[in-house]
Design a protein around this nucleic acid. Structure first.
Lengths: 235, 235
DNA sequence: AGCGGTTTTTGACGCCGATCAAATATGCGC
DNA sequence: GCGCATATTTGATCGGCGTCAAAAACCGCT
C-alpha cells in the first residue's frame, strides 16, 4: 500500500520543492548531503495515516506534493484540524526536542509524497552543524508564529472574516479584481479555518455582498481593496 | 516608571527561577556567562506594556515573577489572549529567526520582573555555541507544541471541558479529593482558556455537579478521578 | 471589623456556528 | 457525454458563548 523509495528516486519537481524549503535551502553541501542520507521518500494514497497520536516519534516529515492534515480527536471521535501542511511544509519537527510521542494524528488529505527524516540522525546533525540547527530554529519559529496567529485568529474573528483573510492572503496586493483557485477541496479549507464545511459555505455566501463569487474551486473577488475594507469596518 | 537593573541586581528567588528555565538550565558555564552578559532585568508594575505589535523585535524575555499576557487586538479593539506567561516562561523567542517586528502585544498582568535578552547577541551566540542553539530549539519546540494544543483545545472542547482540563493539569494525579489555589485572577484564567470572564464563571458553576467548588481563588475538587471521567463521558 | 474599589457572579438576550437531513452541484471514469 | 460517487450547498434547529447591566463577593487597607 505504501511505497518507499530511496532518496535517489525523486522526481525533479519533488526535488525542487525539497530544495526550496526553509529547511534545506540554507544548508551547506556537507549538511545537505547528510540530511539526504537520513531521508527516505514515501508516497501515500489519499486519506492514509502518516502517524497516529501516541506513536513513537522517530521521524519528522516534509510534504513534497499533496496535503497532510494534522489533527486531534476528542473523546467522541470528532476531529479538529490543527494545521494543514502544503508542499514545502515540514511537520512534527517539534518533537525533535520535545516528547518522544506524536501528540496528534497526521493523515494525507490527498495522494501525497513525503520526505521522511530520521529524528535521531537530525538531532545529532543539529548538534554538530550550526546551519542545521539554524534551519531547525527557523522552521520552528515560523511554525510557532503561525500557530499563535491561528489562536488569535480563531478567538478574534468570525467565519466570514477568517475566510476573507484567507482570500486576501492569496490575492495580489493591489486593489483591483482578482481570481484565485483553491488548490484543494473546500472541506480542507474549512478545517484549516476551524469551521465545519457548512459554515465555510455560509461564510462564502455572506461574502457575496462584498463582491466575492465562488464557482467550484475558483474564487473571484470584485475588488480586493473593498474586501480588505469590509474586513476592517463591518468586522 | 520602569526600573532597569543590571544583572547583578537580581534577588535569589528570581535568580533561582531563571536558572531553572529550560532556556538556561542546560547551558555550559561559558554560554551561561555570555547569556547573562546580554541580559538586563526590568521590573514593571501591573498592566504595563512590555512591547506593542509592530515594534522592532530586538529582544526576547523571560518572566521571573508576575505574569505577562501576549495578545492581539482586532479592529474594534477587542483583545484576545494568545498566551499567558508564568514565572520561568520565555516569550518572543520566535522572532529570533522570524520577522523583525513583534507580531502581538505583551503586557504585564500584575507587577512583574523580567529578564530581557538582546536578540542579536543571542542569535550570534546560538550560531557559535551548540548548547545555546539547543536551548532555543527546546524552548521553541515546547512552545510550538503548547500552541498547537491550544488550537486543538479551543476547537474541540467546550468551556466546562477546558476548565476541567486546566484543573486536572494542576491536580495531583491520584483519584481522591484535591484543593488548588489559582495563582492569578480569574479573568486571566478566562483569557488563557479563550473565554470571557462570565463564561469562565458559568463553567465553574456547571462543574459544581461534578464536585468542583470554588471560593475565591481556591478550587476544591471532590474527586479528581470523577472529574476526569466526566470529561470523558459527558464531554 | 468596616470601608471602598475591584473582581466575580448572575440574569437576560442575541448571534454565531455546529449538527442533521435533504437537495444540488461537481468531477471523474467509462 | 452520461452516470455515479462524492463534495457542497441550503434549510431548520439548537446549544454555546459573547455582551450588557446589575447584584454580590472579594480583597487590601486602615
Amino acid at each position: 500500500m505504501e511505497i518507499i523509495n530511496t532518496s535517489i528516486k525523486l522526481n525533479s519537481r519533488d526535488r525542487a520543492v525539497l530544495m526550496r524549503t526553509p529547511f534545506l535551502s540554507g544548508l551547506s553541501g556537507n549538511s545537505l548531503g547528510r540530511m539526504f542520507g537520513s531521508m527516505t521518500i514515501l508516497s501515500l494514497p489519499a486519506r492514509k495515516s502518516v502517524f497516529r497520536e501516541g506513536e513513537d516519534a522517530d521521524a519528522f516529515y516534509c510534504v513534497l506534493s499533496g496535503y497532510v492534515r494534522l489533527y486531534r480527536l476528542n473523546r467522541e471521535g470528532r476531529e479538529a484540524d490543527i494545521r494543514i501542511c502544503v508542499p514545502g511544509d515540514t511537520f512534527a519537527e517539534c518533537l525533535l526536542y520535545g516528547d518522544r510521542k506524536y501528540p496528534f494524528q497526521a493523515q494525507t488529505a490527498e495522494a501525497a509524497t513525503l520526505a521522511r527524516f530520521d529524528a535521531q540522525a537530525v538531532r545529532e546533525l543539529a548538534e554538530q552543524e550550526s546551519d542545521v540547527a539554524k534551519a531547525v530554529m527557523i522552521s520552528l519559529s515560523h511554525h510557532l508564529l503561525t500557530a499563535m496567529e491561528c489562536v488569535a485568529n480563531d478567538r478574534l474573528h468570525t467565519a466570514p472574516q477568517r475566510v476573507a483573510n484567507y482570500i486576501l492572503t492569496r490575492c495580489p496586493v493591489d486593489g483591483g479584481p482578482a481570481s484565485i483557485r483553491l488548490p484543494f477541496q473546500k472541506s480542507l479549507l474549512a478545517g484549516m479555518l476551524g469551521l465545519a464545511p457548512e459554515a465555510l459555505s455560509r461564510a462564502f455566501s455572506a461574502l457575496r455582498k462584498t463582491g466575492v463569487t465562488v464557482r467550484g474551486r475558483v474564487i473571484q473577488v470584485g475588488d480586493v481593496q473593498a474586501l480588505r475594507e469590509m474586513n476592517v469596518h463591518q468586522g
